Simulated scan of single mutants.
Amino acid sequence: MFSRFLIAVLLLSGQPGFGHEFWIEPESYQVEPGASMTATLRNGQNFEGISLAWFDNRFTRFELATGETLTPVEGRMGDTPALQAIAPGDGLLIVLHETTPSNLTYKEWEKFLAFAEHKDFPTAAAAHTAAGWPKEGFRESYTRHAKALMAVGDGSGQDRAFGLATEFVALTNPYDPQFDGNMRVRVTYQGLPRRDAQVEVFDKGADGTVAVSLTRTDQDGVAVVPVTPGHSYLFDAVVLRASPQAGSSEKAPVWETLWAALTFAVPE
């Protein structure tokens, strides 16, 4: 128990070298009204990661949305899973989570170059050099902006924008009986569509095998991803921008990343 708690603290403190993605993983994506439900905050890679406990000073939003109703997630320090609640009435339930900023330090220029290539920021290296920032020992600030789609009872309803700094907005409901197997999502940043943005798709089968692929949004910020019944999914999209703190001190971050994530499952 102590070692798991220590790992969570290290992850939340922004130590470099740990996993990249952050997501909300319900124990079950489909529950009945009035049933107990749980969801874990995870940090890791390739849709595999460790559970992060409840720390109320590490997030700015943690809410459940049903229709127009927003309800804060209640918890206590150290709760694992972080979400433990009673399912509301029938409908699409959306779990929202935004973190406070954390920092990491790039000790090697090559690691930043690899990250920029992986997340599709082809001009990052040139912008970094033009700004005169150091290529060793520089910092990045990052925040997480995650959503999960769950079905309570019939799971009917529609996702919407909730004003996250960056977010996925599901344009189709995977729990709808008329769902055609194509998940349509819009990626936004500061409330506007992100055009030609890279979306990383993690597809987990019933046997736990994970397939990873890339797609892009169109001119309306929309990506269409074919999905498979019985599988669960994590969509990930990252914004990289110059930190507003850059140049304010030697230890100030020069880059800032904002990570959007969406998780859901497709019923069999």
Results as ranks from 00 to 15, higher is better:
179 F>P: 15
187 V>K: 01
122 P>L: 07
50 I>Y: 13
60 T>L: 09
97 H>Q: 09
164 L>Q: 14
9 V>L: 11
266 V>K: 11
206 A>P: 00
261 A>N: 15
228 T>C: 05
10 L>E: 05
105 T>I: 15
180 D>A: 07
218 D>R: 02
41 L>M: 15
209 T>V: 12
230 G>M: 03
72 P>H: 09
42 R>I: 00
28 S>V: 00
160 R>I: 00
92 L>R: 01
115 F>M: 14
49 G>H: 08
89 G>P: 04
114 A>V: 08
156 S>Q: 12
87 A>W: 01
117 E>N: 10
170 A>G: 10
59 F>Y: 15
8 A>M: 02
68 E>F: 02
254 V>M: 14
14 G>A: 07
50 I>D: 11
188 T>Q: 08
55 F>V: 14
115 F>Y: 14
155 G>T: 00
92 L>W: 01
47 F>C: 08
206 A>T: 01
3 S>T: 07
87 A>T: 05
166 T>G: 09
148 A>H: 04
59 F>G: 09
105 T>H: 06
32 E>M: 11
248 S>D: 13
110 E>L: 10
136 E>K: 15
2 F>Y: 06
38 T>L: 05
79 D>W: 09
82 A>K: 10
47 F>M: 13
82 A>L: 11
169 V>A: 06
227 V>A: 07
183 M>Y: 09
26 P>I: 00
224 V>I: 15
105 T>G: 08
115 F>Q: 08
248 S>I: 02
207 D>C: 07
227 V>G: 10
238 V>Q: 12
123 T>C: 08
52 L>C: 03
105 T>V: 15
72 P>L: 04
225 V>C: 13
254 V>E: 15
115 F>W: 12
17 G>S: 04
80 T>D: 09
115 F>H: 10
101 P>N: 11
35 A>M: 08
32 E>R: 15
8 A>N: 06
102 S>Y: 02
61 R>Y: 04
37 M>N: 06
25 E>R: 12
191 G>P: 00
254 V>C: 08
260 A>M: 11
244 P>L: 11
86 I>Q: 14
139 R>V: 06
198 Q>F: 02
33 P>N: 01
132 G>V: 09
1 M>K: 11
55 F>Y: 04
223 A>L: 02
73 V>W: 10
43 N>C: 13
225 V>G: 05
